[in-house]
Each structure stands twice: as structure tokens, then as C-alpha cells.
């Protein structure tokens, strides 16, 4: 298969990505591909570069691409700005989003919707995310961990991106909320449709793997010291990691 064709079949194609943050190289030649309709997960210890990878795909300026390419929907987006990527169909769920005083949750959802008179739709989406009472509050101001997740997913559901980047969606979420968050993610990923009709993809960072009970991921990676050192079936990988720790993955790399 020539590379041109591969680009067209993949929603996201990352080639030999080298990324620095504050002049320190964090990612060393990372490559991965996500086909249309597929969700992939990333495991790995803290400081391994997982969040850096997500932030780089989204295009935050602090994450400097030294070499390599990010191809999204067949377009080279490596030097595109954050907002251009968002409009092209990439969306990210923030782990610790900033408080923006005076900007209401409703304003954020409306901005994501990108259309006028979206009041009814906003109300409907907020209802699904159990966020109705938060619409007129300053965004993220005094929100609990679970409320931040629901707020982020509410905004993403309005934005409706083709590629959803999720950084530890289950962290800080109590048991009561986790199934709601799981179902919100599933609807973002279009998992309500049969596989062949799905076009939305996801890239999910998880430590605990809890989220795997709610989403259907086919490919998993382990990131370690800025490299992808292992690729496989997510649940198998999770079991190995749980049993033997990331050290086993490092061994796997040495083979």
C-alpha cells in the first residue's frame, strides 16, 4: 500500500513525530495511525509523553514539532493553529481546563455549536450531560472533578469532532458518574451506530483502564520515555501491565 493511499484511509496519521516542550525533547519519533471509526488507547507511566502527544495533535503552541508530520483527513496539519484544527474536526477534553470568569458554560457550548438559535439543542445536550444547572455558571468555576468531565464532554458533544482526544476521562470521577461519562463518550464516538457506519475516532489516555468497560477500543499502545514501545489488544495489554507493571513492556521492547 503506498503512503498516499494510507493517508486517505486513515483519519489520523502521525509519522516520526519529534516534539519539544520548553526546548526539551519529549517525544522521539512517534508514529501511529487511527483509521476512520476506530478508537485507540494509550497506556504508560506518568511523564512518558502521553499528554504531550495529545496536546501536539491538538496544536497547542507550547508543543513544538521539531520534525515529523501530523496528517488529519489527508491534510498536513502539522503547522496549523489550534482553532483551525478544531474547525477541521479535532476536539480535546481538558484534564484541568482554566476558569474563564464571566464566560458562562452556555457561552462555551454555544461557541462550540457555531450556529445561532441553538438554545433548544444546548438545553437538550446539557440535559444529557446532567449539566443543565451549570449552564449559567462561569465555566469551570468551582466545578468538581466529575463536573469538569461532564462540562468538557458537553462542549465536545456540541462541537462534534471527528477525532476525540481524551486525557484520562475517568480520573477524579466517582462511580455514579462513570457510566454517564462512558455513555457520553460513546455517543461522541458514534458507537451507537454499527461499526461500518462509524466515522468518528478516538485517542484515549488511561491509567486505570476503567474506561475500557465503556468504550470499544481495538488498538492499544504503551508510551514510555517519549516512545511507543508496544502495540496490541488493549485489554490484554492492561492485564499484563496490571500483573507485571510497565517494566514488562520495556522488556518487550528489548526483544
Amino acid at each position: 500500500m503506498d503512503s498516499e493511499k494510507a493517508d486517505k484511509e486513515m483519519l489520523l496519521d502521525i509519522k516520526d513525530l519529534v516534539v519539544s516542550v520548553d526546548n526539551k525533547e519529549i517525544l522521539h519519533k512517534v508514529s501511529l495511525s487511527i483509521p476512520y471509526g476506530e478508537t485507540q488507547v494509550i497506556f504508560g507511566p506518568n511523564g512518558g509523553g502521553k499528554t504531550t502527544l495529545l496536546m501536539t495533535i491538538m496544536g497547542f503552541p507550547r508543543y513544538q514539532v521539531a520534525s515529523g508530520k501530523i496528517i488529519f483527513k489527508g491534510k498536513d496539519v502539522t503547522v496549523m493553529s489550534v482553532d483551525e484544527r478544531a474547525r477541521l474536526g479535532i476536539g480535546i477534553m481538558f484534564q484541568r481546563p482554566p476558569v474563564v470568569r464571566g464566560v458562562k458554560t452556555r457561552d462555551m457550548v454555544a461557541a462550540c455549536l457555531k450556529k445561532d438559535n441553538g438554545e433548544e439543542l444546548i438545553a437538550e445536550l446539557a440535559g444529557k450531560a446532567n449539566m443543565t444547572d451549570f449552564l449559567s455558571r462561569d465555566i469551570n468555576h468551582g466545578f468538581s472533578g466529575g463536573e469538569i468531565k461532564r462540562s468538557e464532554l458537553l462542549q465536545l458533544s456540541a462541537q462534534s469532532p471527528n477525532l476525540v482526544l481524551l486525557d484520562e476521562p475517568e480520573s477524579g470521577v466517582d462511580l455514579e458518574n462513570i457510566s454517564l461519562i462512558g455513555s457520553l463518550i460513546n455517543s461522541l464516538l458514534g458507537k451507537v451506530h454499527p461499526i461500518r457506519e462509524r466515522t468518528n475516532s478516538g485517542l484515549v489516555i488511561t491509567h486505570t483502564g476503567h474506561i475500557l468497560n465503556y468504550i470499544n477500543a481495538r488498538t492499544g499502545y504503551v508510551m514510555f520515555e517519549g516512545k511507543i514501545i508496544c502495540e496490541g489488544e488493549p485489554l490484554d495489554m492492561l492485564n499484563t501491565i496490571k500483573e507485571k507493571g510497565y517494566r514488562e513492556c520495556v522488556k518487550c521492547l528489548r526483544k
Binding site: V82, I92, V100
Partner: peptide, 21 residues
């Protein structure tokens, strides 16, 4: 950047924040 990641360009993001302020 938070607002830009939702698809607002820099000017739109800035004016939204100022309006909120």
C-alpha cells in the same frame, strides 16, 4: 487557547473573554 480549541479564532476568543471580564 481553551476557547480556540473549541473552534473560535484568536480574535473571537479574546473578545469572548473580554466580554466575560
Amino acid at each position: 487557547e481553551y476557547l480556540m480549541s473549541r473552534g473560535l479564532d484568536r480574535d473571537e476568543a479574546t473578545s469572548t473573554i473580554v466580554r466575560g471580564f
